[in-house]
């Protein structure tokens, strides 16, 4: 490339990775502050409950719909191959494991990141640029507790609940999909699903959704809380909240798989 010497390229890369590392550091400090402050009085219990309601209510229709379609489509796509190998009776078990272990938590978390991460980022971002966060501070309120702790804790509590609901809806979708090809009863289908699932499938899957919820909440708040001046910054905060928390969901997913693998939970 003309005009861009090797040295320039090195400079640009090192500068960008510096910015990246600095951001990671600031995010970690922000997350640490959450853990320091959430147990200290005063407790913003009312705001926490309100946020739980808002967050759950906002995302349920969307996560429910995608979960239903995912269960249905997964079953319909698996069907021909399973017939080919003569193991179509294994469909409920396969779909059950896939949904409970991986598809349900990750898909729901991604939808959640898109919906809730962006709305938290935009809300806090616009509060920041219009000085509402400063106004809270001078009105005898710790804005970190009132805004960040409540929203992050609500994400952490609501995402696992949403995932459990989505998993159920998804399995129901799969049951309907299965019925397109062959008639099974509801009871028989779900007995097969639960026969192949063990506690070790469900517990790690739920635990990881706590981490996903935490990541979405804290990253949305972080991006909003540190929005720089201007309305343009608000859009950027919402956007990068979604991007960063989506990537973080995959990274956490990878880490949790490694840990559960090491613990040999499935044997």
């Amino acid at each position: 490339m003309p005009g861009l010497s090797k040295w320039n390229a090195v400079m640009i890369i090192s500068k960008n990775s510096g910015v990246f590392l600095q951001e990671i550091g600031e995010l970690s400090r922000f997350a640490a502050r959450f853990w320091r402050e959430w147990l200290r009085p005063r407790y913003e219990f009312r705001e926490f409950i309100r946020q739980c309601f808002v967050i759950g209510y906002k995302s349920l229709p969307l996560t429910g719909l995608t979960a239903f379609i995912m269960g249905l489509v997964l079953t319909m796509q698996l069907h021909p191959s399973m017939i080919y190998y003569g193991v179509e009776s294994l469909i409920p078990s396969m779909v059950g494991i896939a949904i409970v272990r991986e598809v349900g938590p990750v898909l729901t978390a991604l939808i959640f990141a898109g919906k809730i991460g962006s709305s938290i980022g935009a809300e806090l971002g616009s509060m920041k640029v219009t000085e509402q966060i400063d106004a809270m501070e001078v009105s005898g309120t710790n804005p970190f507790k009132y805004l960040v702790v409540t929203r992050t804790a609500a994400s952490m509590v609501m995402l696992p609940i949403l995932v459990i609901i989505s998993d159920s809806i998804s399995l129901y979708g799969s049951y309907l999909g299965n019925n397109i090809y062959e008639r099974t009863t509801f009871i028989l289908f779900f007995r097969q699903v639960f026969d192949s699932l063990v506690v070790a499938d469900i517990i790690p899957a739920v635990i990881k959704t706590f981490f996903f919820g935490f990541a979405v909440g804290i990253i949305g708040c972080f991006k909003g809380y540190f929005t720089d001046k201007g309305t343009e910054g608000v859009g950027r905060a919402a956007n990068s909240a979604v991007v960063v928390s989506s990537v973080m969901i995959f990274i956490l997913d990878l880490v949790v798989v490694q840990i559960t693998d090491l613990m040999n939970l499935y044997d």
Binding site: M127, T130, E131, Q132, A135, M136, V138, S139
Partner: peptide, 28 residues
């Protein structure tokens, strides 16, 4: 100390009443 912000800093998710009640309730 009262502080009138340059951008007013009204909480735009709250009604005028809630905006005014906020400092009253928060200062315990």
């Amino acid at each position: 100390i009262g502080f009138l912000f340059q951008s007013n800093a009204l909480y735009d998710s709250m009604t005028v009443r809630d905006n005014l009640e906020f400092p009253l309730r928060r200062h315990s």
